[in-house]
């Protein structure tokens, strides 16, 4: 009985990941904030890690990251590793030292969003020598971080609901 519930919960998460991947990538579907679009797979991965155990969180993070990598560069790489690490870290902290609630997971997720998107900017824009990096960071990346975090909040409550329903 328990394994059935776990199966349905993971199926729900899988459908959520696929749906968000399609939503994120489809042109003209999501509204843009001054040209910035939300990184929905990152929001989903962090929302899942706020509700799941450590190893499943890390695996979901790796899956979301791999899908982001394939959309972005066609190769598995930065996002899969980054997502796996931040989801592992967040889930570990929530499992051992912190209470699982919207406030603590929100703060951790905000830091994770800033870290992942910030590192992407540093490695793939700053180090790549893209001119006018400062303008790019302020006008696009800060907005992207904010938009991604805003999308995290409803996903947190959705995943928490799925966790409670199928646990």
């Amino acid at each position: 009985m328990r394994s059935k519930r776990v199966f349905f919960r993971r199926l729900a998460f899988a459908l959520e990941v696929i749906l968000l991947w399609v939503l994120q990538s489809t042109p003209k579907l999501l509204p843009e904030l001054y040209g910035a679009k939300p990184f929905l797979l990152l929001s989903a991965a962090l929302a899942m890690s706020a509700c799941e155990e450590v190893i499943p969180s890390m695996i979901w993070g790796a899956v979301c990251g791999a899908l982001s990598d394939i959309s972005s560069s066609g190769t598995v790489g930065f996002f899969s590793i980054a997502f796996a690490l931040v989801c592992f870290a967040q889930a570990s902290l929530l499992d051992t030292y912190l209470n699982r609630n919207i406030l603590t997971s929100g703060v951790l997720s905000l830091g994770s969003v800033a870290a992942v998107i910030g590192l992407y900017f540093v490695f793939f824009r700053l180090f790549a020598g893209v001119p006018d990096c400062g303008t790019l960071f302020v006008r696009r990346y800060l907005l992207r971080m904010a938009y991604t975090f805003i999308c995290y909040i409803p996903l947190y409550f959705l995943n928490r609901f799925l966790r409670k329903t199928f646990s």
Partner: peptide
């Protein structure tokens, strides 16, 4: 905690190997 760390290391190794194999043009993964 030790079990989680082992799982993390194994996952990172798998992702690194996947990353190396998916770098080629026309990679199987993408």
């Amino acid at each position: 905690h030790n079990r989680n760390l082992k799982a993390l290391i194994i996952t990172l190794i798998i992702l690194t190997v996947l990353s190396v194999f998916s770098q080629a043009e026309n990679s199987l993964v993408s």
